[in-house]
Structures are given as structure tokens and as C-alpha cells.
């Protein structure tokens, strides 16, 4: 079983990408569980969402404390807490961050910075980099394919919103491939 935790602020689409990731895994015939954990129930408050992906039935319902992968949708959250410290060695983290910015110490894991907000802003004028970050996750881990993520988008959204987000996922994916492989 692979465990993914997503750290964001309420309103940045952490639940959306958790459900997209779960849906993509589901479409590939895997078992998946995606669930949120809220802090204060208001926009901007730090919150987490979690995804488990497995080939076997997933029964465990507790939160994820030792993730294989993490996605950080808002890099300012890194100032308060070192999300890397409990990660499984060999894991990978994907941070929504342009070149300059603070990164905590990370040992034994890979840290990838993806300018996901910039990608989103160029595409649709909003700094909503959640889906672009998901594209980079797909490129960096291979847990779900780009194609499954696109299909998951089509299941959840229609029209222009679906189009721009599919593009964002693709650009996130390509950015990772170009920069890190």
C-alpha cells in the first residue's frame, strides 16, 4: 500500500486532487481511499487530505503519519512544520514552489519543486496549482498515469474547467519530465 498525504489550505483544492488521484487509481483497477482532515472550518486554514492506493482491499481508516509521498500545495505551510521528517525513506515530495523559497531539511527522500501556481496562472489566470502539481506527481512516481488523471478530470468536471485542468496536469507532468529526468 502506498500512502500519500496532501497539505494545503482550505480552498486550495486538496480534496479535489485527493479524489482525482483516487479516481485515477480506481480507473486503473486499483483500490483507493481518499479522505480529508479539516482544521478550523474556514477558508485559508491549514488542512490535510490523504490518499491510500493498494492492490488489496483498504480497511485502515486512521490518518497517514508515515507517507510514501507528500504533496504540498501551499509552500508557506513548510515554515511551521517539517513534513519530511516522518516520511518513509525513499519517498518523494512534490512542492508547489518556484525557485526561491524555504525548504526544510530532507534526508533520504526526494524533494521536487514544481512551479505549479505559475503554470496555472499562465493557463487560466488563477494561482490554483493543485492539478499541475498532480501532473508532476504522476510523472515522478508513476503511481497513476497521465491518461487516468485526465479521465478522472472528465468524470468530475465539464467544459472549460475540465479543459484547463487537463492542460494543467499535462504541463505539470511535462515540467517534471523535462526538469528531473
Amino acid at each position: 500500500m502506498r500512502q500519500i498525504s496532501i497539505h494545503a489550505r482550505a480552498g486550495q483544492g486538496a480534496i479535489t486532487i485527493a479524489s482525482l488521484l483516487g479516481t485515477a487509481a480506481f480507473l486503473e483497477g486499483k483500490q483507493a481511499l481518499a479522505f480529508p482532515h479539516f482544521g478550523a472550518a474556514r477558508m485559508g486554514a491549514p488542512m490535510d487530505s490523504f490518499v491510500r492506493i493498494s492492490e488489496q482491499e483498504i480497511r485502515i481508516r486512521s490518518q497517514i503519519y508515515e507517507p510514501n509521498y507528500i504533496l504540498v500545495v501551499d509552500d508557506t505551510l513548510l515554515r511551521g512544520y517539517n513534513f519530511f521528517q516522518n516520511m518513509i525513506p525513499g519517498g518523494a515530495s512534490f512542492i508547489n514552489l518556484s525557485e526561491q523559497g524555504y525548504l526544510p531539511e530532507a534526508e533520504g527522500i526526494s524533494v521536487y519543486c514544481i512551479p505549479a501556481d505559475d503554470i496555472a496562472e499562465n493557463l487560466f489566470g488563477k494561482r490554483m496549482g493543485n492539478t499541475a502539481l498532480l501532473g508532476a506527481f504522476s510523472a515522478g512516481t508513476g503511481e497513476v498515469s497521465l491518461d487516468s488523471l485526465q479521465k478522472a478530470i472528465d468524470k468530475k468536471f465539464d467544459g472549460k474547467i475540465a479543459d484547463v485542468n487537463k492542460k494543467a496536469i499535462e504541463e505539470g507532468y511535462n515540467y517534471f519530465k523535462k526538469k528531473y529526468t
Binding site: 480534496i15 485527493a18 479524489s19 483516487g22 483507493a32 481511499l33 481518499a34 479522505f35 480529508p36 481508516r61
Partner: peptide, 10 residues
């Protein structure tokens, strides 16, 4: 609540 109502599953 949340653990099931807000979780996604097949």
C-alpha cells in the same frame, strides 16, 4: 462523519 461522509471509495 468525515471519516465516511467525506471519504472517497469505490
Amino acid at each position: 462523519g468525515f471519516v465516511l461522509t467525506h471519504a472517497y471509495e469505490a
